[in-house]
């Protein structure tokens, strides 16, 4: 690629998603799981996508790599640019050169995401061999053992000969990481990689992820429902609700001054260890169905602040401050937050 034509790497984002819309055909109609999502990611940056089950997080991750089931379609207006290339225009062989090489993916459950009948060393070596066809089998195996060492698996040379069911959950997730990182991707997509692990192993994996990111200089798109994990990792937090981005902010700003009532609700629902015995705050209700998003604001039925405007008008992403956006009419009428808070107190 010519350096003269491309914009300087520091200015152009690594990944730029514009108006991504993914829908699934279901028996009860068309489910608009990802409904106009836009965000971007710079080299070396960590963005956490946060939201509860059913908000479209996983559909978003699968859309970025085109790993959707055949019932899914991505709307024509959607645009995903990665390293200056339009991913939506890639053909099958173009995708194979991106997947596993430039973008690595770590799945939620390492037990089910590793092939049960292939030794883990061979599974790591496979990605090396796919993307470097000329490599000798012995060299690919040696590389696999190096990668398992990198991800901190004890006794990697022996572990490489074992099958997934012989490894613990944490070790399997390390194998997944070794596979995802094998070709030094510019972007790592991690879809709830620690959800299936117990809390101490989760902390180890997150620390390892941060360490590897520093070593390899990659960007991470981290998908989670756990705000604690987001706080530990994120440079930027993006909150998704009902297929849309509802709030996007730099991490410190998000945790200090969350704006959207859904985001504040999520933060209040975290257990507070300084007041043990308190009832946990909850957000009433559940995410509406993706086949039939409510009119106006999609959060309005669960929102303490909702008023007539929220039903009449679908809120745009309001700019709150530099780099901080919120999809809530309170941004236009901030006085209402105080009034409602006073009347419910």
């Amino acid at each position: 690629m010519s350096a003269g034509l491309a914009t300087p790497a520091s200015a152009a984002p690594l990944l730029s998603v514009r108006d991504l819309r993914t829908s699934f055909r279901t028996d009860s109609g068309c489910a608009r799981a990802v409904d106009g999502v836009s965000f971007s990611l710079r080299t070396g940056e960590t963005v956490c996508i946060v939201g509860e089950s059913g908000c479209g997080k996983t559909a978003l991750a699968l859309s970025l790599l085109r790993l959707l089931p055949p019932t899914a379609t991505i709307a024509p207006g959607s645009s995903v640019e990665f390293e200056g290339r339009d991913l939506m225009a890639l053909d099958a062989s173009g995708w194979r050169a991106v997947r596993g090489a430039r973008i690595g993916m770590v799945f939620q459950d390492a037990m089910t995401a590793l092939d049960p009948v292939i030794r883990v060393g061979d599974q790591v070596a496979e990605v090396v061999r796919i993307h470097t066809p000329a490599i000798a089998p012995g060299a690919a195996w040696a590389r696999a053992v190096d990668l398992l060492t990198l991800t901190g698996i004890p006794g990697p040379a022996d572990r490489a000969h074992q099958y997934p069911h012989e490894l613990s959950g944490g070790m399997r997730q390390r194998v997944m990481l070794a596979i995802a990182l094998a070709m030094h991707p510019a972007l790592l997509i991690a879809d709830e990689p620690t959800t299936a692990l117990d809390i101490t192993v989760q902390a180890q994996i997150l620390a390892l992820l941060g360490e590897l990111q520093r070593q390899l200089g990659m960007a991470i798109l981290f998908i989670t429902h756990d705000l604690g994990v987001a706080a530990a990792l994120a440079d930027r937090v993006i909150v998704m609700y009902a297929g849309e981005v509802v709030e996007s902010a730099p991490a410190e700003l998000f945790f200090a001054e969350p704006h959207h009532p859904y985001a504040t609700g999520l933060l209040r629902a975290l257990p507070d260890l300084s007041h043990p015995g308190d009832r946990l705050a909850v957000i009433p209700g559940a995410v509406p169905s993706a086949t039939d998003w409510p009119r106006g604001c999609r959060f309005r039925e669960r929102c303490a602040f909702a008023w007539s405007r929220c039903e009449a008008e679908h809120p745009p992403l309001y700019a709150i401050s530099a780099g901080h956006e919120s999809r809530c009419h309170l941004a236009a009428e901030p006085g209402r937050r105080v009034v409602t808070a006073a009347s419910t107190a």
Binding site: A97, G100, M105, F107, L114, P116, I118, I130
Partner: peptide, 27 residues
């Protein structure tokens, strides 16, 4: 074919033939 590890094989750049004959069939 709808198992996670099949999606994972595609995610690392495997061709459909490789996914089918190396991952799915042995299982």
């Amino acid at each position: 074919r709808s198992r996670d590890w099949v999606t994972a094989a595609r995610a690392l750049g495997a061709t459909p033939a490789r996914t089918l004959f190396r991952h799915i069939l042995p299982n």
